[in-house]
Amino acid sequence: MTSVIRAFGSEVLKFRRWSVLAGTGAMVLVSTFIAYLTFHQIASGATGKEMTGLIEAFRTPQGLVAVIGQARSVIIAIALIMVAANLASEWTLGTLRNLLVLQPHRLRWLAGKMLALVLFVLLSMLLTLVVSGAFILILAPGQGIRTEAWTSADGLGIFVEFLGNEALCLVGISALGMLVAVLTRSVVTAVGVGLAYILVLEGIIAVVAPEVSQWFPGRVFNTIVGATVPMVGPTPLQGYPAALGAALLWIVGLVVVSAIVFPRQDVKA
């Protein structure tokens, strides 16, 4: 356990790099901007078929989550990039050999590093939701929008539920990023393969064979959040409990495969 804590502490020091902090900055800025655009459209009386659900939910306790949750794809993509690029960079930079000489128990090092990375991703997501949420709450009175429903006990409950499911979604995305990085061992390839899988491949399969794709990792991680507030993502066709179970199984599977592959790899970087 001490080795894992040391690996965690060592990883935390690396978060001082601007490239890591830039990920959080991009997540906060882009998500807040998307939330603002969504809010502005609704507040300025926009109509449209695709906006109907959002407009209906806007003045209910789900309103705030529905607006700030519009940037979830961005949060997922940036989280995947952050984890895959960070882990794969140890191969690309060659720093992995320094680390594994000092901590030869590879799984302990990977566990410490991933704990730190997942925590960082979750804190970045929390910061993003708090900043974009606060921004909308500040803007709303100026546009004559009442926010009592959003800040009511119901509204806060929905926010916490959304936060929990979003956290689980990002843990799953991080596990996927870890496996992609371990298999590809290159920043460019890891990011490319990770994004292509989540955004393109699963998207195509979802169109061609939605009943199959509903069980795919990217899909189940995404749909468990849509179960809380349908406007922020697709809802699980198989129902929330089944999607939640599948998400947990995928997380365990991705971690187990990484834990089998990584200790057996030759470090040639």
């Binding site: 040391r6 690996a7 502490g9 060592s10 020091l13 690396k14 001082r16 790099r17 601007w18 490239s19 930079l93 720093t95 320094n98 680390l99 000092l102 901590q103 090092w109």
Partner: peptide, 16 residues
């Protein structure tokens, strides 16, 4: 790690 100082690079390994 090019983005970290020489000292922090060593601290990363010292902690580990």
């Amino acid at each position: 790690y090019p983005g970290l100082s020489g000292r922090t690079n060593l601290e990363v390994l010292a902690r580990l």
